[in-house]
């Protein structure tokens, strides 16, 4: 039985299709979701969402972070942006990393909320470079 995957950005519904398994980059480690998974709400980090049909990967999308809601029949990914992995470029990731590093260096080191956010941005940029290289 397939599980329905939906990837939504604030601007539009990006993807909606049934897949056999989806691997999502949860904040605490990658998570493979099959049908009848127990209901969860997870935080995502920057990484690749992999769509499986049988044992083959049919699509790979890079997300910079977001949330996912998992129910028994459905996976909903709320992401600010999702790019097909083959369209990623290393240069884009590097420029993002440079921007995030600069913002981190300039940030107030006592403001944990902002630092946390910026560290996430650095992580997501690094993940982007990695995904582009692979």
């Amino acid at each position: 039985m397939p599980v329905d995957l939906e990837i939504v950005s604030p601007e539009k519904l990006l993807l909606s299709r049934p897949v056999d398994m989806v691997v999502i980059p949860a904040a605490e480690g990658e998570m493979g979701v099959l049908v009848n998974h127990s209901p969860m709400i997870v935080l995502l980090r920057g990484g690749t969402i992999r769509l499986y049909e049988g044992n083959t990967i049919v699509d790979q999308l890079f997300v910079t972070g977001g949330f996912a809601e998992v129910t028994q029949a459905r996976v909903t990914v709320l992401a600010n942006e999702a790019t097909p992995v083959r369209e990623l470029t290393k240069a884009e990731g590097q420029s993002r990393l440079a921007a995030a590093d600069a913002a981190y260096a300039a940030a107030d080191k006592n403001d944990i909320v902002v630092l946390d956010l910026l560290m996430d941005r650095q992580q997501s940029a690094r993940a982007m470079i990695e995904a582009a290289a692979a």
Binding site: E6, P10, E11, K12, L13, I41, F67, L78
Partner: peptide, 12 residues
Amino acid sequence: AARPYAERMERM
């Protein structure tokens, strides 16, 4: 087009 995200966000 923005509605699906807002709806799901609201649910969470």
